[in-house]
Design a protein around this nucleic acid. Sequence first.
DNA 1: GATAATGCC
Length: 669
Amino acid sequence: MAQDRQEPPAKRFKAAPPGTQPQSAAPPAHVQRRSLPISGARGPLLARLRRLDTAVLIGETGSGKTTQLPQFLYEAGIGQPGVIAVTQPRRVAAVTLAARVAEEKRTELGKLVGYTVRFDDCSCAQTRLRFLTDGMLLREAIGDPLLHKYSVAILDEAHERTIHTDVLFGVVKAAQKKRKERGLRPLKVIVMSATMDVDLFSQYFSGAPVIYLEGRQHPIDIFYTKERQSDYLQAALVSIFQIHQEAPACQDILVFLTGQEEIEAMTKTCRDVAQHLPEGCPRMTVLPLYASLPHSQQLRAFKPTPEGCRKVILSTNIAETSITIAGIKFVVDTGMVKAKKYSPDTGLEVLAVQQVSKAQAWQRTGRAGRQQSGVCYRLYTEEDFEKFEEMTTPEIQRCNLASVVLQLLALKIPNVLTFDFMSKPSPDAIQAAIDQLDLLGAVTQKEGQLVLTPLGKKMAAFPLDPKFSKAILVSPQFHCAEEILTIVSLLSVDSVLHNPPAQRDEVQAVRKKFISSEGDHLTLLNVYRAYKSVNGHKGWCRENFINGRNMKLMAEVRAQLRDICVKLSLPLESCRGDTAAVRRCLAHSLFMNAAQLLPDGSYSTVGSQQAVAIHPSSVLFQCKPACVVFTGLLRTSRCYMRDLCPVDAEWLLEAAPEFFHRKLRTAKS
DNA sequence: GATAATGCC
């Protein structure tokens, strides 16, 4: 494959979340601290920040902004008295950053410097520098919209534009304004980002000044293909082996692909090809990397390879931000990503392979130059690259907003339709969310204003999608709260079922014993009961292709949800063998996701008459129940229902009579 | 009739 050498880009690259990579041998923290580029700018930086209410800080890789700036502010007495909050999109980052800063300050973690993430609060009344996930600060804001305890809010990794960060922008902006109006202590807001979206951030925060920090990034050579590639997998394969035959064996390759199946297939192909290489060629270790891969197998990607052997990592976009692998010399970027879109009119989530944005391509490229100079092969032409979108569409414009709207209402935002989003979701998307909350009985109109009902307030107490909160809240009526807690917890973590494509038959055989003819939810319940009966035994998990890590996480979620139930005085009963009670409860919470079997053997959703099919992963795949509810729709090659539960049609009518009568009318007209 | 990017409360 012919490739033109291009000049390295003038742009620098975005910093990976510090601390998320495995620690190598390094000098003591307080020794290293002074050599970071930010140190030289300390005086002028503090002088500017002291005067500003809001600032946008652009820092490049290795600028040290996340670890140093909070310390500078604290040491200079900026924001005293009060707590300095630093938010992160990911838990590991919040935890490791706090640990790093505590070490630099030579204090015990959890005292002056602490962190707060779900299930793990390592902070106390003396904590002044507090690292938290953005979702955590958002939860806190529901109880205290003005964020009284904080004097400074630093929103880090803002360019990632997670749904939580985007809502937080609006929350801190409103808190800052209200505190000013009421003559309270000011809230200083500092938005930290990589070299993207700068103008947007500044404009949103009323023209806040942008401060640039110098970084350290090794140069990266970029190669584009001369011609457009019709098959990016083939192109990737060619690139991998071209690099393999030319470059020294110690230099590792990171390849960006789109999903599990593709990666597993490519892993196999590469391993096969590597078997038949000419004499003198280095050996090759091919390692897949994606989120649903069991932890132990993910760890293999971090292990250094023995001398004379090259590591080739085939990864999803997990390696773009969440996971940093040391020693990558070559990045191969297919330019493709699997990402979710949402259309409010159909309520459909669409998971589709699409082109990355320019920002995303730069992010991938940057993974090559972290410890040494690197090379990035882009498997598309430069002309095509120029046509890529500048930025990835923020998540808030690609999601079902039911959860967000519920949170905004819990924050007592007067009008969710005019909430000050940095990037406004479409009014249709917001309206669809309001309609959904209305169906669930969470909202009502009061003096021309949309407010939460008592049920809605209870729903907002749960860290869950509103339909799952509803399931829990109605479960006492069916005496099955314990079962519903289990099911909802299982559905709100990554799948506890491990499905390695290579062992498909084995998986099917071993999973038979859990299968319930009453659908996926009850099958999951069986899995949980079996897991409990062996006390989560590791060997049992392995034999049964159960992801033990996700099971443990699920147990933590369940305990948290159960606590909330206790606080709300919900009677927690078990229905034992009465599985119909569980299905009835699911009918009462998932009724807007219902589908009926048509005479021709296909399915159609009850509301929007959308043609749908049973997802092959469902235990009901080869069955034809007359009427089902499902957890969600996903369009890949077809429009699939996931996590199905057979229900009686009468249950649906009993659950939401108005909704179904209305639907019937529209169906007739 | 044939299969699910990532992350968080």
